[in-house]
Computed example of a mutant assay.
Amino acid sequence: MQFDLSSLETATLVFIGTLVFGVILAAFVLAAGLVALVLLGAGKLSWTLVSTTLLALVHGINASWDKLVHRSSSADVAGEFQGQVSPSTGTYPRVILRDS
């Protein structure tokens, strides 16, 4: 037995068409929402990785600098620095310029 669409009323065909169109629209909205969530998750993951890496890098630099400062402060300087003899520049002695 074959199904004949001509036996259905127009209102029934419009109702079935509306339901099919609604299912297609709902599927599109669900797919778009899923894609948006996936993109949002990927962006969040990449931002978390980048920020964690940068934060670890900054903490590593700070820890290294702290170790360097503590080591240099514990070093014993044998004596004062000796002044170096500088040759004159002709008739005028060499002048050390300071920040003004």
Results as ranks from 00 to 15, higher is better:
1 M>Y: 07
5 L>C: 01
6 S>W: 04
8 L>E: 04
8 L>D: 01
8 L>P: 00
9 E>K: 14
12 T>L: 09
13 L>W: 05
13 L>R: 15
14 V>P: 00
15 F>A: 15
15 F>M: 13
15 F>Q: 15
16 I>H: 04
17 G>S: 15
17 G>K: 14
19 L>N: 13
21 F>V: 06
21 F>G: 05
21 F>W: 10
22 G>Y: 02
22 G>I: 04
23 V>Y: 06
23 V>G: 12
23 V>H: 05
25 L>I: 12
28 F>K: 10
28 F>P: 00
29 V>G: 07
29 V>S: 09
29 V>D: 01
30 L>A: 15
32 A>H: 06
32 A>L: 05
33 G>V: 07
35 V>M: 14
36 A>G: 04
41 G>C: 04
41 G>F: 12
42 A>C: 08
44 K>I: 05
44 K>Y: 13
45 L>V: 00
49 L>F: 08
51 S>Y: 01
51 S>L: 01
51 S>K: 04
52 T>L: 06
53 T>F: 13
54 L>S: 10
58 V>T: 02
58 V>S: 12
62 N>L: 13
63 A>M: 06
64 S>T: 09
64 S>V: 03
65 W>S: 10
66 D>F: 02
66 D>H: 08
69 V>M: 11
70 H>Y: 12
71 R>G: 05
71 R>K: 14
75 A>P: 00
76 D>R: 15
78 A>R: 15
78 A>E: 11
79 G>T: 08
80 E>K: 12
82 Q>A: 14
82 Q>N: 11
83 G>T: 02
83 G>H: 05
85 V>N: 15
87 P>R: 14
87 P>L: 06
89 T>Q: 14
89 T>N: 14
94 R>N: 05
94 R>K: 14
95 V>D: 01
96 I>E: 13
97 L>N: 11
99 D>F: 03
100 S>I: 01
100 S>W: 03
